[in-house]
Computed example of a mutant assay.
Amino acid sequence: MTLATALAGVAGALAAAGLADLAVVVARARVAAASATRERGRAARWVAALTRLGRRIGAPAAPRDLGARLAASGLPATVRTADAMAAKAGGGVVAALATMPLAGALPTRLALVVLPGAAAAGFFAPDLWLARRARRRAARAGLELADVLDLLRVGVEAGLPIGRALEEVGRRRSGLVAAELRALAARLQLGVPRADALRLLQRRLPLPAIAVLTAAVQRADHHGAPLGPALHALAQDARADRARRLHEQAAAAAPRIQLAVALLLVPAVLLFVAAGLVHGLA
Rank of each mutant, 00 (worst) to 15 (best):
P206I: 02
V177D: 07
L188W: 07
A185T: 01
G155A: 11
E180D: 14
A165T: 08
V156Y: 00
D150F: 03
A158C: 00
A178Q: 11
A186R: 14
L152E: 08
G163D: 15
P206M: 10
P193R: 15
L166S: 05
P193N: 11
L205W: 10
A183C: 01
A195M: 11
L201W: 04
R171M: 01
I162R: 07
P206C: 07
G155Q: 15
E180M: 03
L188Y: 07
L201S: 08
R153M: 02
Q189L: 15
L201G: 09
A178E: 06
R182C: 05
L201F: 02
A178I: 00
L160P: 03
L205T: 12
D196Q: 14
G155L: 14
R194E: 07
S174K: 15
A165M: 05
A178T: 00
A179C: 11
R153V: 05
R172T: 01
L176E: 11
E167V: 14
Q189P: 09
L151C: 10
A183F: 06
Q189V: 09
R173A: 07
A197K: 00
P161Y: 01
E180K: 04
S174H: 15
Q202S: 13
I162S: 13
R194Q: 13
E168W: 10
L205I: 09
A186C: 04
A185S: 15
R203L: 14
R171C: 06
A183L: 07
R204M: 03
R199V: 05
P206K: 10
A185Q: 06
R204N: 01
L205H: 08
R182S: 06
V156K: 00
V156T: 10
L205Y: 09
L166D: 01
A165C: 10
S174C: 08
V169S: 04
L205F: 12
E180P: 05
A179T: 13
V154Q: 09
L200I: 06
L198P: 03
R199D: 14
D196A: 15
E168D: 11
L160W: 08
R199C: 02
L166E: 02
L151I: 00
A158F: 06
A165P: 05
R171E: 14
E167A: 15
L188E: 06
R172Q: 12
R182Y: 08
R173M: 13
R164F: 05
E157V: 00
A165Q: 04
G191E: 05
P208G: 07
R164P: 01
R194L: 08
V154E: 09
R204H: 00
L151R: 13
A178L: 07
R164V: 12
L200V: 03
P193V: 12
E180T: 14
A185Y: 10
L190Y: 07
R204S: 00
A158E: 01
L198A: 05
A195I: 00
L188I: 13
A158K: 00
L181C: 10
V192F: 03
P206L: 02
D150K: 05
R199K: 13
